[in-house]
Simulated scan of single mutants.
Amino acid sequence: MTTMDIVEQFEENCCVMCYTTAGQLWNIIAPREFVDFSYTTQYQEGLLSCGVSLNYGETRPNFVRGHNHPCGWFCVPLPDNLDHSLLTGYIQTDLRGRLPQSAVDTAMASTLANFYSDLRKALKV
């Protein structure tokens, strides 16, 4: 993910967000943008965030509009170590466009690995 912007805020925990990704595999996979409705709330001393893509606004030039089917992230503190949490994500992404499945699988695997690695670095104290 290269950018994440709130496009419209409804309440503190409810908004429309736009995410972009960089091109992958020497731009065989063009940059994507996703516009999602997102809702985040407290859940068992942790957080639950869920979302789904919307048909919202125009697709920016040089991007392909991807689509996220209903998805969610759970972040719950570990009972035996409250300084650490378990992050579980359920995603169903359709990158759209004409892509060989092998290219999609390779790009998604590296993108998710980079996402978790960057998240871990960002959360280190």
Rank of each mutant, 00 (worst) to 15 (best):
C75I: 15
Y39A: 03
S110E: 06
T59R: 03
G46Q: 00
Y39V: 08
F10P: 01
Q101L: 14
S117W: 12
I91T: 09
C50N: 02
N27K: 09
N55K: 03
P79F: 07
Q9P: 09
G97P: 00
F10M: 05
S102G: 12
Y19A: 06
T111V: 13
N27V: 10
S110V: 07
R96D: 00
Y90E: 10
V16S: 04
M4G: 10
V125K: 15
E8F: 12
P77C: 03
S85D: 01
M4R: 13
Y116D: 00
P100L: 05
D94A: 07
V7K: 06
M108D: 01
T59E: 03
A113E: 15
N81H: 09
T111F: 14
L119G: 02
S102H: 13
L95I: 03
Y19K: 08
L99I: 05
F34P: 00
S102F: 15
Q42F: 08
P61H: 06
A122G: 04
M1G: 10
H67Q: 11
Y39G: 02
G51M: 08
S49W: 05
L86A: 01
C50G: 02
Q101W: 13
E58F: 05
A22Q: 07
T106H: 12
Y90T: 09
N81Y: 07
A30V: 08
L78S: 02
A22G: 04
S117I: 11
A109V: 14
N114V: 13
H84K: 14
V64F: 07
S53K: 01
L86W: 01
S102I: 13
D105H: 10
C75P: 05
D118M: 07
N68S: 14
A30F: 09
N68K: 05
Y90N: 09
T2K: 14
C71L: 11
L87D: 00
L112V: 09
N27Y: 10
L47R: 02
R98S: 13
E11M: 15
Y19V: 08
L86I: 01
D105N: 13
A109P: 09
M4H: 14
Y56W: 10
V64H: 05
N114H: 12
D118N: 04
L78V: 00
T3Y: 12
F34D: 00
Y43E: 04
T2E: 15
D36I: 04
G57V: 14
T40I: 03
T106K: 11
N27S: 11
S53A: 08
H69A: 11
E58H: 03
P31V: 03
A109M: 15
L119Q: 05
A30D: 09
T40K: 02
V7F: 10
F63W: 02
N62Q: 09
H69W: 08
T93G: 08
R32L: 06
C50R: 02
M108V: 13
F74Y: 06
C18Q: 11
W26V: 09
V52H: 04
Q24P: 02
G23F: 10
T41P: 05
R32D: 00
E45W: 05
N114I: 12
F74A: 01
A30S: 12
N114F: 13
Q42R: 07
